[in-house]
Design a protein around this nucleic acid. Structure first.
Length: 901
DNA sequence: GAGTTTGAAACT
DNA sequence: CAGTTTCAAACTC
């Protein structure tokens, strides 16, 4: 293994600079892939890589390859490590490192100015140094990623700024991204070279897809920030020195920036010249994603050393030029995706749902994994948004970062739900992207695993630190008897393969045993179709408003813990107990059984604070974040990324009046519904809107941190009731939030304007709502009724902001809002149901059915909100229909399942 | 780190 | 569906 691997790696890396023509040839690469040791368990590698090998070009980019190599290698090594072979693995890793390092150096030097970092890393690559080195890479990643939020922000800012303009910006981003990717690759390479410990990290950072890495990295770059955040955690765990990270990150950034400047043009040219390639690459991307899906990162990590080799092999063939092209193509794709997605990103966030894809079958729950990515993505996006339109405060970014971290834990559940929910047509593409994200997650997991490995290779009993959950979603299970093939296993339950970090014994939840895993899953699902569905469903509507909006699908059954300990799944998920809970003496801080909404701000805060008091300060932050996460994460996750809190958006609007339209669009944005209802108008504005939304989210996060009306919403939402419904509403919820402020204003005359908006949204939403409700008929109904109060409250709480926001919105509305909407608004929410947009005049119900089918719940939620205004709104019937209707979101099978439940 | 407690999952 | 057992995590010491 070693010998072949090393040569391969070298070949891979070398291609850029030294690669012999033979290596460059795809055939060679293919052969090399074949030649490499046949992975003991070819399954993983084979699954993931067969495609790769066959289409070497896709993987051509050395960087990418390297990345994959690292990730894959890491995993394989892990298996070794798992088998107490760490020493070997490390040695191998070192060997690899040596080889790759050189290549890396070449590459980096050639391509990057940031090489210095890589070199440093290389120098550090010595066994112990490796860890540090790894840490450095991590740092790099982190810095690149969200962790070094600020730096990331900077990058994102740059990229986004450039992007904001539009395609040009995307080009710039590509360039930057490519650059970024390079550094990342370097890191990865170093990681790959590095022993298993590093690998995981690398994997986390890069593993996803080499190809993707490039682009994704780019695109992710922004997202990566989020990741970075996760990674940061990991990094933190790992022996990384924050300062070093920052420095590195900064340096790196600088390099990237500089390079980006030059590369941008190049990249853009590249793209232009080889659009076809880009397409191919995209295809490759998809493939890769699929592959990844097939072979979840964790799985690969665990026991496929051979797979790594394969990967390497596949990679080597590509020449540097090819690699660059690939990168470019990816970048282009990423741009497209990003460009499209970024704004959408939120949309993008929906893409985040992508994680689903990861798990062919298994990864349905991989949402969890996705979550981290999502988080990262969201955070990054947020940052970007801020940079772009909002000029959000860096602090917010930091906050977001914290949130991202916090979110990790919570988001998994919530995200899962959200992701499924949010799925929209757009999401599909994103999903592809998401797969890479997942990989990254896996990478992050790997990182965690790496840490663990470092800590204790033999017995890894992982101590689940509260935040220990791997960003990848790996739960670090410790199963001893179930072989990780039962729901007892968190990893298995989450639809994720166990990772090296796991301390499980006799684990079958690995790619090698994919068949077994799938079979087992099927069996379990046969018994309980919802067994793998996200346990935590965010009531989209509720969720948006309150963190507590999320609820445990099945509810807890606590008897003694009073839902105040992690024994309680609800509590563990930072969600309130719902009527579905069978707990006794529920004292769930996030919401007691029976009072969905009841979680009062004060209560939640106090409760949380109490918890926090017990917990560390960080935990407190997390708690807050988690709450936010509950909401925000869901939101983020949902892709809907409904603006967390109206207030934020409001503030945003205030800050950037021009953005306000975006907000509106965001509201509208609900994937489906928006499209259907507001479509044209929104479409024009969506991108901007999304950005604004993201920024708004960021702002919201910051606000949340500040402890703003966030809770207020929660209360209201909680009151609204728990809805199983997910994503669709999310969108709506944000909208609602915005609306609410307006409503406040409106409570009066302003209402007209606000109503117009709400109506405007409502027109669609109303219809949507029913549908979304269809998923959660109950919630929807409740929601409809409750929304009113929340609105008012929100307005009350956030009046100032709301007012401004409203004004801004109103202005925007007036400006951007179709006159129809205005009219509608003027008319009333109730009336509006018909649809201001013109599109729908049909009664809400009908619309609901219609729209609901195609539209997402988000709009619905917003509409629901409107409904508030229009008490008459008969949400119920529509809701029932909604279930069926949510085809788009239904695509988010998980969510649907959860909802259906 | 070992042992206990807890509640979910699995089983009957 | 209810009750019991098994399991792994959370928690305590």
């Amino acid at each position: 293994m070693d010998s072949p691997e090393i040569p391969k790696i070298i070949a891979n890396t070398s291609p850029s600079s030294d690669s012999p023509p033979v290596q460059e040839s795809p055939v060679f690469s293919y052969i090399s892939n074949l030649s490499p040791i046949q992975p003991v368990k070819a399954s993983h590698a084979a699954q993931g890589f067969p495609g790769l090998s066959s289409p070497p070009l896709v993987f051509t980019s050395p960087r990418i390859n390297t990345l994959r190599e690292t990730s894959f290698l890491k995993r394989p090594q892990y298996p070794q490590l798992a088998s107490a072979e760490k020493p070997k693995a490390q040695d191998e890793a070192k060997k690899f490192v040596d080889g790759p390092v050189d290549s890396k150096k070449h590459i980096t030097q050639l391509q990057m100015g940031s090489i210095t970092d890589s070199q440093d890393c290389e120098t550090n690559s010595s066994s112990e140094g490796v860890d540090e080195y790894l840490a450095d890479p991590m740092e790099m990643d982190c810095t690149n990623s969200a962790q070094s939020v600020n730096p990331c922000l900077k990058e994102s800012k740059i990229s986004y700024k450039s992007e904001a303009p539009s395609e040009q910006a995307t080009e710039d981003l590509l360039g930057k991204q490519t650059f970024v990717a390079k550094p990342v690759k370097i890191k990865e390479l170093s990681h790959g070279a590095m022993p298993s410990s590093e690998r995981p990290k690398v994997g986390s950072g890069i593993s996803v897809d080499n190809a993707f890495n490039g682009e994704y990295h780019h695109g992710l770059h922004n997202q990566s920030q989020g990741f970075g955040g996760e990674h940061q955690d990991d990094c933190d765990h790992s022996p990384q020195s924050p300062p070093g990270r920052l420095q590195i990150g900064q340096v790196y950034e600088d390099c990237t920036e500089n390079v980006g400047g030059t590369s941008k043009g190049i990249i853009g040219n590249m793209i232009l010249h080889a659009p076809n390639k880009v397409k191919n690459d995209q295809g490759g991307m998809h493939r890769r994603c699929l592959q990844f899906e097939e072979a979840p990162p964790c799985a690969t990590g665990k026991r496929d050393s051979s797979s790594i080799e394969k990967v390497n092999n596949s990679e080597p063939p590509a020449s540097t030029a090819e690699l660059e092209i690939v990168k470019v193509s990816y970048a282009a794709t990423s741009k497209r995706q990003m460009g499209a997605s970024l704004p959408p990103l939120y949309g993008g966030s929906s893409p985040l749902t992508v994680p689903k894809p990861s798990g062919i079958g298994l990864h349905l729950n991989s949402i969890v994994n996705a979550v981290p990515f999502v988080r990262g993505a969201t955070t990054s996006i947020k940052l970007a948004d801020h940079d772009i339109g909002l000029q959000v405060m860096k602090s917010s970014a930091v906050v977001s970062h914290h949130l991202s971290e916090n979110v990790r834990d919570d988001t998994e559940t919530s995200i899962a739900g959200s992701s499924s929910i949010t799925q929209s047509p757009h999401t599909v593409e994103f999903e592809h992207l998401g797969s890479p994200l997942e990989e990254r997650k896996s990478d992050s997991q790997n990182v965690d695993s790496y840490k663990e490995l470092n800590q204790s290779s033999s017995q890894k009993k992982r101590k689940r630190t509260p935040s220990s959950k791997d960003s990848d979603g790996c739960k670090r299970c410790n199963c001893k008897k179930t072989k990780c093939l039962k729901l007892y296993c968190d990893c298995f339950a989450a639809g994720v393969y166990c990772a090296e970090t796991c301390a499980c014994q006799g684990c079958f939840n690995i790619p090698d045993y994919e068949d077994t895993v799938l079979e087992t899953r099927q069996q379990i699902e046969a018994r309980n179709p919802l067994a793998f569905a996200p346990k935590i469903v965010q009531l989209e509507e509720e969720i948006q408003f309150t963190p507590a909006s999320a609820r445990h699908k099945r509810g807890c059954n606590c008897k003694k813990s009073m839902c105040l300990k992690k024994y309680c799944e609800c509590y563990q998920a930072n969600v309130g107990c719902s009527s579905g809970c069978r707990c006794d003496g529920c004292k769930n801080v996030y919401g007691r059984k029976g009072d969905y909404g009841p979680i009062d701000h004060g209560v939640t805060k106090d409760m949380i604070s109490d918890k926090a008091g017990k917990e560390t300060f960080d935990e407190k932050l997390e708690m807050v974040a988690t709450k936010k996460d509950a909401l925000s994460t869901e939101l983020y996750d949902s892709h809907n990324h409904t603006p967390l809190t109206p207030s934020f958006q409001c503030s945003d609007h205030v800050d950037n009046v021009p953005k306000s339209p975006c907000l509106l669009t965001s509201y509208l944005r609900s994937p489906e519904s928006d499209l259907t209802v507001i479509s044209s108008y929104e479409k024009s504005t969506r991108s901007s809107l999304r950005n604004s939304e993201t920024s708004g989210i960021l702002l919201e996060t910051s606000k949340e941190l500040s402890g703003m009306g966030y809770y207020c919403w929660q209360e209201d939402y909680d009151n609204i009731g728990i809805a199983d419904t997910f994503s669709p509403r999310y969108d709506a919820a944000p909208i609602i939030c915005h609306i609410t402020p307006l409503s406040d204003l409106c409570s009066k005359a302003s209402a007209s304007s606000t109503s117009s908006r709400s109506d405007w949204k409502n027109a669609s939403q109303v219809q949507l709502c029913p549908e979304s409700q269809g998923l959660s008929s109950n919630s929807s109904l409740r929601w409809c009724s409750s929304p009113l109060t929340p609105m008012t409250r929100l307005g009350g709480t956030e009046c100032s902001q709301g007012l401004d926001f409203d004004h801004g919105l109103s202005d925007i509305m007036q400006e951007e809002m179709p006159e129809i909407l205005k009219d509608i608004s003027a008319t009333n929410k109730s009336v509006k149901v018909s649809s201001p947009n013109k599109k729908r005049v049909s009664p809400p119900h009908n619309h609901n059915h219609e729209l609901g089918a195609s539209s997402s719940g988000s709009l619905r939620s917003g509409r629901k909100f409107i409904l508030k205004a229009v008490p008459s709104f008969p949400p119920l019937t529509p809701c029932s229909s909604s279930k069926g209707s949510n085809t788009i979101q239904s695509t988010g099978n998980l969510h649907d399942k959860g909802r259906k439940k």
